[in-house]
Design a protein around this nucleic acid. Structure first.
Length: 282
DNA sequence: GTTAATAACCCG
DNA sequence: CGGGTTATTAAC
C-alpha cells in the first residue's frame, strides 16, 4: 500500500488521523520489539480498516485531504461559515467488515515512494540489495541521526545569512564549520534546508534581517528585536561550551562593511575564484 | 503518547 | 541546487 504515491504524512492523517512522525515510529516499531502492546495496536486496527477500502476510495480520500490542506488559508476572519468539505467517505464498516474483500492486500507495508499501486502481480522486479558487491559496503545499520544544532550556532548561521545571501562558498562553509564545530556536511545541509523553508513555508514570522540601505518601512511598530549574544542577564540556559581546552576560538565574524573587493587579501588558496556569491536573489 | 519542528535523505 | 519526503527528537 505504501506503493501508492501517498506520503506518510497524508496516509497517517487519513488512516489514523495522526501525524507523519507517528507513522514513521510505528513502522520502526515493527522492527524493534517494543514491549508495547496496547494503544499502538489499536491504532493499527484503524489503519487496517482504512486499507480495506478499494483503491479508488482511498484515492478519493487522499485528494480530499490534500485539498483541504493546500487551499484555504487566507480566509482570515469571518468567512466560510459552512464547510461542505466535511463528508467523510463512508466509514460504516466499523464493526464488521464483512462482505467486501475484493482486494485483500497482503499488507506489504513497506517503503513506499514512487510507484502507484497498479501493478499487482508484477511487483517490484528485483530489489536486491547488493550486499557484497561494490565492495565496501559494509553494510551497516544506518541510523540516521539528527544532530542538534546549538542555539549559538544557529544564531551565527542566521546572521551569516543576513549578511551574505543564502548560499556560501566553500570557504565560508569551512569557516563556519570550524567556528561552530559542526561537520561541514551539516552546514551545507543546513543551508539547503533554510533555503527551502524560507521559500515555501515562509509565511508569517520570519524576520529577515537584511535590507540595509533600502528604506524599508513598515507601518508596523513595536518592532524591536534585540540581539542575541549569549545570555543577557537573566539566567538562562546553561550551556556547556566547548571550552575545555582552554582555547576556543570563537571568533566573531568580522563582517565587512563591505567586502567584495578583496584588494589585498587573497585567499590562501591558490586558484581561486570564489565566486563572490553575493547573490541576492529576487 | 502524540504533535510539531527540523536535520538528513532522495529524486529531479 | 531545489523540492519534497522521511526519520529523529524535543516539547506538549
Amino acid at each position: 500500500m505504501k506503493r501508492a504515491k501517498v506520503s506518510q504524512a497524508l496516509f497517517a492523517k487519513v488512516a489514523a488521523n495522526k501525524s507523519q512522525g507517528w507513522l514513521c515510529e510505528l513502522l520502526r516499531w515493527k522492527e524493534g520489539p517494543s514491549p508495547e502492546n496496547r494503544t499502538l495496536w489499536e491504532n493499527l486496527t484503524n489503519i487496517r480498516r482504512f486499507l480495506f477500502l478499494r483503491q479508488a476510495e482511498r484515492d478519493q480520500v487522499y485528494e480530499e485531504e490534500s485539498r483541504q490542506q493546500h487551499s484555504e488559508r487566507l480566509h482570515t476572519a469571518l468567512h466560510v461559515p459552512e464547510q461542505q468539505v466535511f463528508h467523510r467517505p463512508p466509514l460504516p464498516p466499523l464493526t464488521s467488515p464483512s462482505p467486501v474483500h475484493e482486494d485483500p492486500q497482503p499488507l506489504p507495508l513497506l517503503v513506499l515512494q514512487g510507484s502507484e499501486d497498479g501493478s499487482q502481480s508484477g511487483i517490484s522486479p528485483g530489489l536486491s540489495a547488493g550486499a557484497g558487491s561494490g565492495s565496501g559496503s559494509g553494510g551497516q545499520k544506518k541510523a540516521r541521526s539528527r544532530t542538534r544544532i546549538s542555539l549559538e550556532a544557529l544564531g551565527t548561521l542566521q546572521s551569516f545569512i543576513g549578511d551574505v545571501g543564502l548560499y556560501p562558498d566553500q570557504e565560508a562553509i569551512h569557516t563556519l564549520s570550524a567556528q561552530l564545530d559542526l561537520p561541514k556536511h551539516t552546514i551545507v545541509k543546513f543551508f539547503q534546508n533554510q533555503r527551502y523553508n524560507n521559500k515555501h513555508h515562509n509565511n508569517n514570522q520570519v524576520l529577515d534581517e537584511e535590507e540595509r540601505g533600502s528604506p524599508n518601512e513598515e507601518g508596523v511598530r513595536g518592532e524591536s528585536v534585540s540581539e542575541e549574544s549569549g545570555e543577557d542577564g537573566g539566567g538562562s540556559v546553561e550551556e556547556g561550551r566547548t571550552e575545555g581546552g582552554g582555547d576556543v576560538e570563537m571568533e566573531k565574524e568580522e563582517e565587512e562593511g563591505d567586502d567584495g573587493k578583496p584588494s589585498s587579501t587573497l585567499s590562501p588558496y591558490s586558484s581561486l575564484d570564489s565566486p563572490p556569491s553575493a547573490e541576492q536573489q529576487r
